[in-house]
């Protein structure tokens, strides 16, 4: 099992953000966490990547507990987070952003090869490689954020709201890219408010409500589930 999260309890001060969450992810899967604002989706990702510490519960990656491992070590083991809201280094160029993604790698020839493959996947980034990150369009910034994640050779990629604030066409493109990355062997844990798109590409999915998992199943099953349709897919 690639990732196993067990009865995770996370607090922000007095706020009980995650109230005992358990889920798992098999090698090669796309697993989606869907839910409304404030359900705790990003908290799950931040806990898996080590930026937040759980009060109780455990996170295991490739059968080793990582919930007390510092974030930089988790990155080295291959769990890479692409943070929410297209967080890139806006005052660094595209190239520099990608180099930062390979911060844990030191082989310069390898970094150059990785950058080349990112540029092959995202040709827009190649055109704009000497431009400051902050001057890119929203879609390009999201591509840069994902590209930066790929530079670190993820075995598990944590994607936080990749569709946020993008036009429908761009959302389609980004989800195609996510599927493509997955087909080349990277497992993906996807957090989304856009339940329709997320469930369409996910092998399995969990529905989060106020810090608890209230439902789970394959992406297709959940897409047909009346209560999911009612709550997250706009009725009917």
């Amino acid at each position: 099992m690639m990732l196993k999260v067990e009865s995770l309890q996370v607090f922000y001060g007095a706020i009980h953000a995650l109230q005992g969450i358990s889920f798992h992810l098999e090698k090669g899967e796309i697993v989606a966490l869907i839910g409304a604002n404030g359900a705790g989706k990003s908290t799950v990702l931040n806990t898996v990547s080590g930026i937040l510490r759980p009060r109780e519960g455990a996170v295991a990656f490739e059968d080793q507990e990582i919930h007390e491992v510092p974030p930089q070590e988790i990155v080295r083991r291959g769990v890479i987070q692409v943070p929410e809201g297209r967080k890139i280094f806006s005052r660094m160029t595209v190239t520099e952003n990608l180099e930062m993604g390979a911060y844990t790698h030191t082989d310069r020839a390898e970094i150059a090869r990785d950058m080349e493959s990112v540029f092959e996947r995202f040709s827009r980034l190649r055109e704009r490689r000497n431009q400051l990150g902050g001057t890119l369009s929203g879609g390009e910034q999201q591509m840069l954020a994902i590209g930066r994640g790929l530079m670190a050779h993820p075995t598990l990629l944590l994607l936080d709201e990749p569709s946020m604030g993008l036009s429908p066409i761009l959302v389609e493109q980004i989800f195609d890219i996510i599927q493509d990355i997955n087909e080349q062997g990277t497992s993906i844990l996807l957090v989304e408010q856009n339940a329709q798109m997320a469930l369409a590409i996910a092998d399995r999915a969990y529905v989060l409500e106020t810090g608890k998992i209230v439902m789970q199943g394959t992406g297709d099953d959940l897409l047909k589930d009346p209560s999911v349709i009612e709550a997250y897919l706009g009725g009917h």
Partner: peptide
Amino acid sequence: TVARATGIN
């Protein structure tokens, strides 16, 4: 935050 997510201590 992003710096930490890219593996910087």
